[in-house]
């Protein structure tokens, strides 16, 4: 564990807490893409299958449970909660995310570290996480103005993988057998997808204005 990875995990956790706060405090999920949340639930379920087989550390196991539980709770809330689900922008959240799932699964079958069930699903989860934010970014562009909590949620979500890139650079220089090129390439793509969001987020922060994404 190094400071970059720890900061990355904490940033990721903060993004989830901000989303939970938004849904719980405002009893609304307007501006949030259910499809992105479903993709994240799939990412965590596919990646953390080793929860019961590979014990790494208490921290690792606890965080896996937190990520799986929170992502499922958010999907449940947006689908079933009688008050929250009424504020879901169903007509705006129209990204065909099943194509993302199919493409990532096909890629994972072609490119993975070892052609085993767990490794294919692990690579699938890495590829899927890289593109999972797309429905959310499309929804933000369509819904025009973005409320503060949603903007902060997406910002922290993008920042966490940037810390992981620093972690991979650090591990590359400090560990002999470190080769996580699947994670690195996907992580770079994932962070790059946030580039324009980060730009508009910075502009809104500098001008102290409302976050606006161009349609």
């Amino acid at each position: 564990m190094n400071i970059f990875r720890f900061l990355g995990d904490m940033t990721h956790l903060i993004s989830i807490l901000i989303l939970l706060l938004k849904i719980y405090a405002t009893k609304s999920c307007s501006g949030i893409s259910l499809k992105t949340q479903e993709l994240y639930a799939l990412v965590f379920l596919a990646r953390y299958l080793d929860l019961f087989t590979d014990f790494i550390s208490v921290y690792n196991s606890v965080m896996k449970v937190v990520f799986i539980a929170s992502s499922l709770a958010i999907v449940w809330c947006m689908r079933r909660h009688r008050v929250v689900r009424r504020s879901y922008d169903k007509e705006l959240d129209t990204f065909r995310h099943y194509f993302l799932v199919a493409a990532c699964l096909a890629l994972a079958l072609l490119v993975q570290e070892k052609f085993t069930f767990l490794e294919v699903l692990w690579a699938f989860s890495i590829y899927l996480e890289a593109v999972a934010i797309l429905p959310q970014l499309v929804l933000l562009q369509r819904s025009g103005n973005v409320d503060n909590l949603t903007g902060q949620y997406v910002f922290f979500l993008g920042a966490y993988r940037a810390f992981y890139i620093l972690n991979w650079i650090y591990r590359y220089f400090t560990e002999t057998h470190f080769s996580r090129w699947i994670s690195c390439v996907s992580g770079l793509v994932q962070t790059a997808l946030y580039a324009d969001f980060f730009y508009y987020y910075f502009i809104s922060w500098k001008n102290n204005s409302k976050l606006q994404l161009p349609a």
Binding site: D9, D50, D54, I56, K64, F67, E175, T176, H177, S179
Partner: peptide
Amino acid sequence: KEKPQGHDEL
């Protein structure tokens, strides 16, 4: 440091 078995990152 040997590369840990499996994936040790979240």
